[in-house]
Design a protein around this nucleic acid. Sequence first.
DNA 1: GTGTTTATCGTCAGGCAGACGACTATGATC
DNA 2: GATCATAGTCGTCTGCCTGACGATAAACAC
Lengths: 252, 252
Amino acid sequence: MPYDPSAFPPFAVTVDLVVLTVRRHALCALAVRRGEAPFQGRWALPGGFVRADEDLAQAAARELAEETGLRVHDPAVPAQDNGAHLEQLATYGDPERDPRMRVVSVAHLALAPDLPAPRAGGDASNARWAPVEELLQQGGHGRDGEPVAPLAFDHARILSDGVERARSKIEYSSLATAFCPPEFTVGELRRVYEAVWGVALDPRNFHRKVTGTPGFLVPTGGTTTRQGGRPAQLFRAGGATLLNPPMLRPEV
Amino acid sequence: MPYDPSAFPPFAVTVDLVVLTVRRHALCALAVRRGEAPFQGRWALPGGFVRADEDLAQAAARELAEETGLRVHDPAVPAQDNGAHLEQLATYGDPERDPRMRVVSVAHLALAPDLPAPRAGGDASNARWAPVEELLQQGGHGRDGEPVAPLAFDHARILSDGVERARSKIEYSSLATAFCPPEFTVGELRRVYEAVWGVALDPRNFHRKVTGTPGFLVPTGGTTTRQGGRPAQLFRAGGATLLNPPMLRPEV
DNA sequence: GTGTTTATCGTCAGGCAGACGACTATGATC
DNA sequence: GATCATAGTCGTCTGCCTGACGATAAACAC
């Protein structure tokens, strides 16, 4: 018993991706350059149409793989490595958000370790990792002094929501490990928190907190000196997903 | 420059509502009985199509007003009374979730004080407040011993997500006051927490916590004895929306 | 070796939460 | 009217956690 098609307005449904990573002590997001109108030449979040037989999460995972080559970490396989974290963020459906037609976009948030290089359908010049402050500042200037155009559509709002989600979620979950390689040191994890929150944390208190939370970190036995200084113990993410009590974000 | 309509599959977009309230010490949700196939006669969450010129939040507010008569509390008018809290919850788009066609539903969460009586387009017999455990138990029995059919579509999942959102959000925000009338006592607010979390809280520690958090509660000067016992001070919700440190939810 | 960098352990004081005693003010019951 | 039950409000104490920060350890650069 199909619906009467005249009983409801037709929508296009897309997924847009806020893909975050930490590069050079800064929280960065993946941006792609638009090749067509509207907003031709402007930077935007990666995304695309949801296909007819696809779930929303499947569509987001497919777009993520197309843009970055990343596979999605399956929560059912806790020991799996190198997978990105992917979760639904929010849905944006203002009637005016796309001048061409009525588009509802289901935004997703992906967190990934630092990656070699972005690729946008093979064209690297049309995709880049950019610090989120640079992408969010309206009419400002990038680090090279060039003027920065705001993101296309309502993507600044979406990116802002995604960053805020990430910032709050690493407080009370082990999600920060999604920014790290499979094995990492306490210092590397601390630099993730510092980059995402934009603050400096006390290394000693941080070390006490993360090593004292049961199930958060599992030592692998190895050590590394890749950060310089005294060799640091290597850890994997433990099974715990919720941090209780949470990691406290310093004021201001 | 309109899209080529063959370039993407058409979707129907709906909003579904998880409307929660606290009645008789239990967390209850609004359910409506379906009048047509599929799932005819089964209980479901209220909802409807998003109109062509409507934002998602507007559509949710319209559906909420149609089902309950509630207006949405405008955050820009902090002193406003009697408004419900409304926020986007999540979006559900499994290709099989509606057997008739491809429907993407943007679920919203509404929190309301205890209301006189539900109305579903004027037909009260087709709408009711039901305890969420009753709506979520699969194939169980209600309090009157009648067998309970599971909610239509994927609405059990949506309701479950909404309840979990409410449970976690009252930890770190002042959202619990959305379940209270404009003026309320500390004890009434505590019973909200107890009903939503399903736990018992120490009245003395709770009183110390909520009255000691700046901006959470504002005394109105009046007192009431409507709960029996010693008269209690009346409060309004203060301007603070975030609770820091949060209210701690007891284990188990 | 000296200096620098990073990691790791320890100490101490303050804040907050859980447990719980004590007192107050109302209505209900005898 | 005395007693009881109920609910509200104020305090105290103890333990845990955090922030601040001293001290030591183990690598590398010169």
